[in-house]
């Protein structure tokens, strides 16, 4: 793979990446897709390197995806989740970082429930750090895998209309996607109940739609966001059924988008809350492909960062 060198030590967010950085990562990921489809999936790019997946928040697909990506590139991968770590015993994030740093890893992949926690950790370790999701801030590899999926199906981003629907306020996926799509020249529309829309969203270069009808009208991509269970009642949304009626994606609403519109969801899905099961499994859905692209994109990111490591 002969992609341009990635100019950053860490991947903490999409904000701060240039269009060229993003394209470089996507090009690398295309090659990784090919590798992953072969019988012999193993490469030696990261041989001898140690990758630690440090997850303070439960995750199935992201953690598995990073683990597979590291292993396919030949790294030794260690998974640490909060349930078995000393953080539960009162150790601070920074102590944990210092402890792991002393074990001389080459890459740490971090997920944390607090925005900014991965930035903080990156200041305290010597190795490269990849943000696998920090609070409601960013989830850059999710945005990259979404971008790869879009590019492979639509050929590019310029002028594409992408509707992002649901709980944008609490969504790191939405933030990373908005930053990425804006950088790549797509038109982003956002839609959701007013309680779940962040303040000042219109100043991010996003068109804020009043309802799903307006958001989906003529859209090329419909990206649905997960509604966390704890937000389905209380001060945000009255009930799951009311949410589904107004903001859930079903066949009728999808019909408002372009005929060849494609449906995406970062998973895990709440069927019957933000998305109808039939739509999720339907011909326009890219949800399975997103998962495949996830491994490829993470391989690309690991490889790009590894080239910058000492002795790399």
């Amino acid at each position: 793979m002969s992609a341009p060198a990635f100019p950053h030590k860490h991947l903490l967010g999409i904000e701060g990446l240039s269009r060229l950085d993003i394209e470089g990562l996507l090009d690398r990921a295309e090659a990784a897709v090919e590798i992953s489809r072969q019988v012999e999936k193993k490469r030696a790019t990261l041989r001898g390197r140690t990758q630690i997946n440090l997850f303070f928040e439960a995750s199935t697909r992201t953690q598995a995806s990073f683990e597979l990506a590291g292993k396919r590139l030949g790294a030794d991968v260690m998974n640490m989740s909060v349930a078995s770590s000393s953080v539960k015993k009162g150790e601070t994030l920074i102590d944990t970082a210092a402890t792991l740093n002393a074990m001389r890893p080459d890459v740490i992949v971090v997920r944390h429930h607090q925005a900014g926690a991965v930035h903080l950790l990156s200041h305290k370790v010597d190795c490269s750090v990849i943000n696998a999701g920090d609070g409601a801030h960013e989830h850059p590899t999710q945005a990259l895998l979404d971008a790869l999926t879009i590019r492979r199906n639509k050929g590019g981003f310029e002028g594409l209309v992408v509707a992002i629907c649901g709980d944008i306020l609490h969504s790191r996926v939405a933030r990373s996607n908005i930053f990425l799509l804006a950088a790549m020249g797509a038109r982003v529309r956002a839609c959701g109940p007013a309680t779940l829309m962040p303040p000042g969203l219109d100043r991010w270069g996003v068109e804020v739609a009043g309802d799903m009808r307006e958001a989906l009208d003529g859209a090329d991509i419909v990206m649905m966001l997960r509604l966390q269970r704890e937000r389905m009642s209380g001060a945000f949304v009255p009930s799951a059924r009311e949410y589904f009626r107004h903001w859930g994606l079903d066949a009728d609403k999808l019909a408002l988008a372009k005929r060849d519109a494609l449906v995406m969801h970062p998973g895990p899905m709440n069927r019957g809350v933000e998305i109808d099961g039939a739509v999720a499994d339907g011909a326009q859905s890219l949800i399975r492909e997103q998962v495949e692209m996830g491994v490829a994109v993470r391989m690309a990111v690991l490889e790009a960062l590894a080239e910058r490591l000492p002795n790399g």
Binding site: E15, A115, P199, L201, W204
Partner: peptide, 10 residues
């Protein structure tokens, strides 16, 4: 609360 807090996800 504002555009900047929203960007930082805080």
């Amino acid at each position: 609360e504002g555009e900047f807090s929203a960007r930082l996800g805080l």
